[in-house]
Simulated assay, not measured.
Amino acid sequence: MTATAENSTPLLPGAAIIVGIRSLLVWGVVASGVLGTFLRGTHQSCTGGISSNGQGFLTADGAPTDIEPSCGMATLSPSPLVFLLLAAIVIGSLTLILRRAVDEDYAFRILGNARMAIVIVTLVALAVGWIAVMTLQIDDWGSYSIFSPQPFAQFDVESWPITQR
């Protein structure tokens, strides 16, 4: 920023607001990167196995059975809705500034609140996603129900017979 010699006001009117908007955009991009990088997890298991002689199957308790056990994997990833939510915070705060800000201080308060909302959404999404994948337990890949922590994260579930992989 270039300043005049008499005082420290910028030469471009509204430059401080532009810096605040740039900061808000950087916070949004960094939050999206953090979610894309750290909101990941998997849970994989099989509900039985193959007998030691390779001729039959075993249940999860180790009892022989004729029914082929199934295996599966649930993969946690960020939901596209959380990225839309972050974008809505940025666009909504800019719209609010254009409609309601009467001075720079009010605009800076809106930008500060939007940055705080981005941080809160990011931390809540990380916590909810991690708790969801850590508490995930599937005992039977043939019939299961998974709580998907929308709008923060989503599970991609894949199952297969034990002899396929």
Results as ranks from 00 to 15, higher is better:
9 T>W: 05
13 P>G: 04
13 P>S: 14
13 P>F: 03
14 G>I: 14
16 A>L: 13
16 A>C: 10
17 I>V: 08
18 I>N: 11
18 I>E: 11
18 I>L: 15
19 V>T: 11
20 G>W: 11
20 G>I: 04
20 G>M: 03
22 R>V: 12
22 R>M: 12
22 R>T: 14
25 L>D: 15
25 L>K: 12
25 L>W: 06
26 V>I: 03
26 V>P: 00
26 V>Y: 03
27 W>V: 12
29 V>D: 15
31 A>C: 06
32 S>D: 09
32 S>C: 00
33 G>A: 03
34 V>R: 04
35 L>W: 03
36 G>S: 11
36 G>C: 01
37 T>F: 09
40 R>S: 03
42 T>E: 14
42 T>M: 09
45 S>L: 07
46 C>N: 10
46 C>S: 11
47 T>S: 15
47 T>P: 09
48 G>T: 03
48 G>V: 07
48 G>H: 06
49 G>E: 14
51 S>Q: 04
53 N>V: 06
53 N>G: 07
53 N>H: 08
54 G>R: 10
57 F>Q: 05
58 L>W: 01
59 T>H: 06
60 A>Y: 03
64 P>V: 06
65 T>H: 05
67 I>M: 10
67 I>T: 14
68 E>V: 09
68 E>Q: 15
68 E>F: 03
70 S>M: 14
71 C>W: 05
71 C>I: 03
73 M>Q: 15
73 M>F: 01
77 S>L: 10
78 P>F: 06
79 S>A: 14
81 L>M: 13
81 L>P: 02
83 F>P: 08
83 F>T: 08
83 F>H: 11
83 F>G: 05
84 L>T: 09
86 L>W: 06
86 L>Q: 09
87 A>C: 05
88 A>P: 08
89 I>A: 04
89 I>N: 04
90 V>D: 05
90 V>A: 07
91 I>K: 01
93 S>T: 06
93 S>E: 11
93 S>D: 14
94 L>P: 06
94 L>S: 05
94 L>E: 05
96 L>P: 02
96 L>V: 00
96 L>Q: 13
96 L>K: 09
100 R>E: 06
100 R>P: 01
101 A>K: 01
103 D>I: 01
104 E>V: 02
105 D>K: 07
106 Y>A: 12
106 Y>V: 09
108 F>Q: 08
108 F>P: 01
109 R>F: 01
109 R>M: 05
110 I>L: 12
110 I>H: 01
111 L>I: 15
112 G>N: 11
112 G>D: 02
112 G>L: 06
113 N>H: 13
113 N>C: 10
114 A>S: 08
115 R>N: 05
116 M>G: 07
118 I>D: 01
120 I>H: 02
122 T>L: 00
122 T>H: 01
124 V>A: 13
124 V>T: 15
124 V>C: 02
124 V>L: 15
125 A>I: 10
126 L>D: 04
127 A>T: 14
127 A>R: 00
130 W>Q: 14
131 I>C: 00
132 A>F: 09
133 V>S: 07
134 M>I: 08
134 M>G: 04
136 L>G: 00
138 I>E: 04
138 I>N: 05
139 D>F: 04
